[in-house]
Amino acid sequence: MSGDRGIRVGVVGASGLAGGELMRLIGQHPNLELTFLGGSQHAGRRPSELHPGLRQDLGLVVEPVTDDVADRVDVLLLSTPAPVSADLAARFADRVESVVDLSGAFRIRSDELHHKWYPKVPRADGLADRFVYGVPELVGEEMVGAPLISLAGCYATAITLGLAPLVFELGMNLDHVLVDGKSGSSGGGVHLRTSDLHPFRAGAIAPYSPTGHRHAAEVSDFLGRSKPGTVGTLSMSAYGVSNVRGLLASCYVLTRDDVDERTLSRAYLRFYRKHPFVRVRRNNETLIPVPDPQATLGSNYCDVTVMHDPDGGRIVVLSALDNLVKGAAGQAVQAINKRYGLPEETGLTMQPVMPA
């Protein structure tokens, strides 16, 4: 970015759900200018044709991604499947100021673990080590000036924000973490699958990943490098529910460390007091129990509640967010703000829409 010119942003994967959210958020950001929309299947189509909610004429149509894109953008946002992101990141890593990837291509640092969960996503040698990975609240200072940023997945965002105060603030040793995740249909994107057809999805609680999830591996890889606390095992079961947007990650933590509810509550409030997008809440503070994904929809908030279950010998952490905003597009804009030294809330002050 030079002089008073806005930050020029290109979105690849413009036809997807997260791509639509990126256009919506960039359009209301005072410092960002959308200058390129990339895609392969919908070349020549206007944003309003792909996303009915976007009626504003942006003067852009979807185009194939060619090498001259590097001359048209400062930031290239990759809202694309992991194999496509891996290819485009290698292609543009040293040609634009910053590449921000929303896929899973570079989230897992370990090559061995990456190959286990993303066997069809080859990466250029050494490229993963150049990416700053994570949630802005936890690695934001590393994002300042970063040329390559890999954002956490939607579930991984909820889980790491839920567990971070235990690991970073209290330095606890989490022997076992069991995660129960429930997410709406938008988490699966716009690909046509039988399981996502309305007759099967409506009213469903579908155990689509009951014995493992790549976002759990992502969290384990990240927290495994963290201090002062430790994480032993972290496993996850994921369920699809009939909501369109939003997810809830319920984390059940087993630890031998002594803890009480007051200590937990104070640690969470202390840890997040300077992070406006994480709202630490009491479970019974509103007319409906929270965290509830419905209370975050359309916003960049993650609502977190921590409780102690002395009878069960566990800590219960609940994290809720909008998977398309804080879990994807909003987090991308937040990362751009951090990268360019803008106030973190810039362009992201919208409140949740409820009921939705």
Results as ranks from 00 to 15, higher is better:
271 F>N: 01
145 G>F: 03
86 A>N: 09
334 Q>C: 07
59 G>T: 14
319 S>F: 06
201 R>M: 09
47 P>W: 15
223 L>P: 05
131 F>S: 02
223 L>Y: 10
207 P>S: 08
273 R>C: 12
197 L>G: 08
348 L>S: 12
56 Q>W: 04
288 I>R: 12
163 L>M: 04
125 D>Y: 04
58 L>E: 10
124 A>W: 13
65 V>G: 10
349 T>G: 12
158 A>R: 01
19 G>C: 11
49 E>S: 14
3 G>V: 02
3 G>S: 08
27 G>Y: 11
25 L>R: 09
150 S>D: 01
15 S>M: 06
331 Q>E: 07
238 A>D: 02
318 L>G: 06
23 M>W: 09
321 L>E: 10
15 S>I: 02
289 P>C: 03
55 R>S: 13
112 E>A: 15
304 V>N: 03
61 V>W: 02
190 V>K: 11
65 V>D: 12
132 V>D: 06
254 L>F: 14
136 P>E: 00
24 R>F: 07
67 D>S: 15
341 G>Y: 02
330 G>R: 02
250 S>Q: 06
116 K>N: 06
322 D>K: 00
307 M>G: 03
34 L>I: 03
303 D>W: 05
294 Q>W: 07
126 G>Y: 10
26 I>P: 12
182 K>W: 05
319 S>M: 04
113 L>D: 12
117 W>E: 15
10 G>A: 07
225 R>L: 06
27 G>E: 10
237 S>N: 05
223 L>M: 11
342 L>I: 04
262 R>F: 02
117 W>R: 15
315 I>F: 04
44 G>K: 11
189 G>W: 02
24 R>C: 08
13 G>F: 07
270 R>T: 09
205 I>E: 11
170 L>K: 07
204 A>M: 08
354 M>A: 07
48 S>N: 13
342 L>D: 05
113 L>C: 11
183 S>I: 15
91 R>D: 12
269 L>N: 08
317 V>K: 14
71 D>Q: 13
94 D>Y: 06
55 R>V: 15
14 A>W: 09
34 L>R: 03
128 A>K: 10
157 T>C: 09
297 L>A: 09
185 S>N: 06
256 R>G: 15
216 A>F: 03
41 Q>T: 14
132 V>G: 11
183 S>K: 05
33 E>R: 14
55 R>L: 13
248 L>E: 10
296 T>Y: 06
6 G>N: 07
281 R>I: 10
40 S>Q: 14
293 P>S: 06
23 M>C: 11
346 T>R: 04
320 A>T: 05
25 L>V: 12
31 N>Q: 15
75 V>S: 13
171 G>I: 00
160 T>I: 09
226 S>P: 01
28 Q>W: 03
162 G>L: 05
160 T>V: 12
174 L>N: 02
97 E>T: 13
